[in-house]
């Protein structure tokens, strides 16, 4: 039983991270119908920014400020940095292609992703950076929940992910910007005619999605310790898959998809073998695509003639 609960915790942690990345994909797809392949690399840059802030405060071993303050600084810096990067990418790589075929921005996104990875490789080298979280949040600091002790870092990840998702849901559901985003997602031309500023809405969407990815990057650094220039690719792929499984364009769908994949991976590794993690996730993807192509919580796209 303990084992099972342990896997649930593992799955939640992983799932939370995937969900945050998936949210960024979903938001952008919703407004632009674009799969932003560079999203994973924005997440990677966020993780590096967080590492930079950590080092600026004196490195993992000797922090010059209290831990909560450092953490906050890391999150804010990563969110801002990634957000700005996302906006820049949109402005220069995607905006010129807004009226082109569906394939064009996808390929540009591939190019941007490749460029970012190698730019980071050039500027920062190939060395893996380690967050070494246990130097400032000891591994053994745990919270006892029943028979199990969950490490503090994981709780931090789960709580942060959940909080951000709730905040995002409120943003999309209750604010003016959220309404604008939904309107643009539904019918861009009509929204424009209703006086919604398309460019600003899209910029805001990219900013928010990329900021979420940046925060996810820092969270991953805290829990899984390593940051390298290649981490964006596989995480992006998983986040992508999560968004699709949950229903791309749907915010609760991205969350559900992320959790589902996180759980699937944890349980596969625990009960079957970690060799088959990716295969099982692929299997889930194919099954969902065959049974319910719009995703679990997605709404069928109406084909307007």
């Amino acid at each position: 039983m303990d084992f099972f609960v342990q896997q649930v915790v593992n799955g939640l942690t992983l799932g939370g991270v995937y969900a945050l990345i998936a949210l960024g994909y979903s938001l952008v797809y919703g407004v632009l119908k674009l799969l932003n392949f560079a999203h994973g690399d924005v997440y990677m840059v966020g993780a590096f920014i967080g590492f930079g802030v950590l080092t600026a405060f004196g490195g993992p071993a000797s922090l010059a400020a209290p831990v909560p303050l450092v953490l906050l600084a890391m999150f804010v810096a990563a969110a801002l940095g990634s957000g700005v990067l996302g906006v820049v990418i949109e402005r220069f790589a995607y905006r010129p292609l807004r009226d082109a075929t569906r394939i064009a921005p996808l390929i540009t996104a591939l190019g941007v992703s490749f460029f970012l990875q190698n730019a980071v490789l050039l500027l920062l080298g190939a060395d893996v950076r380690t967050y070494d979280t246990s130097a400032f949040i000891p591994v053994t600091t745990a919270v006892d929940v029943g028979p199990l002790s969950i490490s503090l870092v994981r709780i931090l990840v789960i709580v942060a992910a959940a909080a951000l998702m709730v905040a995002l849901a409120r943003l999309v559901g209750r604010t003016k910007l959220g309404r604008a985003m939904r309107a643009v997602a539904f019918d861009r031309e009509a929204a424009q005619m209703m006086g919604v500023d398309i460019d600003r809405t899209i910029v805001a969407t990219f900013f928010i999605g990329s900021a979420l990815a940046g925060v996810a990057g820092v969270l991953v650094g805290l829990v899984f310790l390593q940051v390298s220039h290649l981490m964006g690719f596989i995480a992006g792929l998983k986040g992508f898959t999560a968004a699709v499984i949950g229903g791309i364009g749907s915010v609760p769908g991205a969350m559900l998809g992320g959790l589902l994949i996180g759980m699937a991976e944890s349980f596969t590794a625990a009960y079957i073998s970690s060799t088959f993690q990716n295969l099982i996730v692929f299997g889930i993807l194919i099954t969902v695509m065959l049974v319910r192509p719009v995703g679990l919580l997605g709404t069928p796209e109406l084909n307007k003639v």
């Binding site: 593992n10 899984f224 981490m231 596989i234 590794a269 625990a270 970690s274 060799t275 993690q277 990716n278």
Partner: peptide, 17 residues
Amino acid sequence: RDSVNQDATDFSALVSR
């Protein structure tokens, strides 16, 4: 015996085994 991908970042499930 088991194997992991070099890209994997989370070994918790494997560790728990």
